[in-house]
């Protein structure tokens, strides 16, 4: 899985919410810890449902947890 254009602030949000571990976040959103790690590193773009779950765990809007960097069209 190559790097995606979707970036996120999940690591910072985890630390801001009682230093939540990747495992804890994974259990709350229904994925594996390895998937959470892949999302944080930008190697995997989660589905819309998982993205919304992540935002809901941290109590923030989707746009605060994720952002999309569209590349310039040539």
């Amino acid at each position: 899985m190559t790097k995606t254009a979707v970036t996120n602030k999940i690591r910072r949000l985890r630390f801001d919410h009682g230093e939540m571990t990747q495992q804890e976040l994974a259990e709350r959103i229904g994925v594996t810890r390895q998937t959470v790690n892949a999302i944080e590193l930008g190697k995997y773009s989660p589905s819309l449902e998982v993205a919304f779950r992540i935002a809901r765990v941290f109590g923030v809007p989707l746009e605060e947890a994720f952002s999309y960097e569209a590349s310039e069209e040539k």
């Binding site: 229904g30 994925v31 594996t32 390895q34 998937t35 892949a38 995997y44 989660p46 589905s47 998982v50």
Partner: peptide
Amino acid sequence: RTRKDERE
């Protein structure tokens, strides 16, 4: 026992 997630 964990079910496969979307990435898997």
